[in-house]
Design a protein around this nucleic acid. Structure first.
Length: 333
DNA sequence: CCTCCACCGGAACGGAGGGGGA
DNA sequence: TCCCCCTCCGTTCCGGTGGAGG
């Protein structure tokens, strides 16, 4: 049934990008000078999740490398590597170097490794608003060989973190805005994946429409749902994806994402999440009291506050109100 | 309108842990 | 081997904030 599992993965890059030609062109126009050995422009990609930002960024770099081979490129997910060392470490991974990076390497030396290069280096910083340390952005901006593709969901999320000088630099770079995909576009994207990744006639168009609707403009979600449904159908051995498979796949795809995030939490954080789930929510005070009861050797209130923030960061919880009316709620969507 | 209180989150600190260099 | 430099994580301390209730 699944003939090419790669095609159903999140990070699969199709060999042609559909529906995003304008955005694609704007990004390549910014980078194109590098082919003639000129200095490319930084670009800033803004838009909701699943709108193709990451895909376009990676795709345009791939195309660029076909035209000029001696460019280094790299992809860094700032959400996963939010502190300065990890992000820098990731950035450094992208440059060809025999240089050995270890935990005790001073930042300056790592930066120097990037500075000392004479080839262009284009790096994608995905979810750049999650970067805890904006110092890194500043430093990278000051290196002429480095060009950045910054990706984030909302412009103001990033600006909130930055000082004015950096803000104006980013404002002056090429900004490409992405809108969520329309229902039809999602449908077309799904059709392509079906064509390349699944055997013929395993899913009917109306079901694909249903997936497209459930995904609400988010291509990543759409593909996750399709993947879930295809796996379920394969398990059943029915030979085709049925309405039942799709129906289950919608919550399953969400649960899968949630579980991935829960797995990243430490024991104390997981306990806290359990408490939040049992109670459905509560004030920080109540949650802390329950947490204190539940674990031996509980952490301090301040630490638990950080944990709650972490849950929010991973989209497992949401907070509302402030001061005495502050409360946390479980996020099950 | 004002005061109180729970909560927020930045900052500084310290111990554990890991790795290089003398 | 020891020392140094780094990160990571939790702790302590504390000024700030905004609703609730007088």
């Amino acid at each position: 049934m699944i003939t090419n599992a790669r095609v159903l993965q999140d990070d699969f890059l199709p060999n042609e990008v559909v529906h995003r030609h304008t955005e694609m062109n704007r990004v390549t126009d910014a980078l194109e000078p590098v082919v003639e050995d000129d200095i490319p422009e930084d670009a800033f990609l803004v838009g909701p999740s699943g709108a193709g930002k990451t895909c376009i960024a990676r795709y345009s770099l791939e195309k660029l490398q076909e035209e000029r081979v001696d460019i280094d490129t790299h992809y860094v997910d700032c959400w996963q590597h939010s502190n300065r060392f990890r992000a820098l470490y990731k950035v450094l991974e992208g440059v060809e170097s025999t240089y050995d990076v270890h935990r005790s390497t001073p930042h300056d030396e790592m930066i120097a490794q990037i500075e000392d290069r004479d080839q262009p280096y284009i790096v994608i910083l995905d979810e750049v608003d999650q970067l805890a340390d904006t110092q890194l952005l500043k430093q990278l901006y000051s290196i002429p060989e480095v060009t950045m593709l910054l990706i984030c969901n909302r412009e103001r999320d990033l600006y909130a973190e930055l000082d004015e000088r950096l803000q104006s630099r980013i404002r002056s770079s090429v900004t490409v805005t992405f809108d969520a995909y329309t229902h039809d576009e999602i449908f077309a994207i799904l059709s392509d994946r079906v064509k390349w990744g699944l055997a013929d006639d395993v899913i009917e168009d109306p079901l694909l429409e249903e997936i497209a609707t459930a995904a609400e403009g988010n291509a990543r979600d759409a593909i996750s749902i399709l993947r879930s449904a295809a796996r379920a159908a394969e398990r059943d051995g029915t030979g085709e994806i049925t309405a039942r498979h799709v129906k289950h796949a919608v919550p399953e795809a969400r649960a899968e994402i949630r579980q991935k995030n829960v797995d990243k939490l430490n024991d104390h954080q997981q306990h806290l999440y359990e408490i939040l789930r049992e109670n459905g929510g509560g004030s920080p005070g109540e949650l802390y009291a329950a947490y204190r009861e539940a674990v031996e050797d509980p952490r301090t209130k301040r630490t638990v506050r950080s944990y709650l923030q972490k849950l929010e960061h991973y989209n497992l919880a949401e907070s509302s109100g402030s001061g005495p009316s502050r409360s946390y709620n479980i996020l099950e969507t």
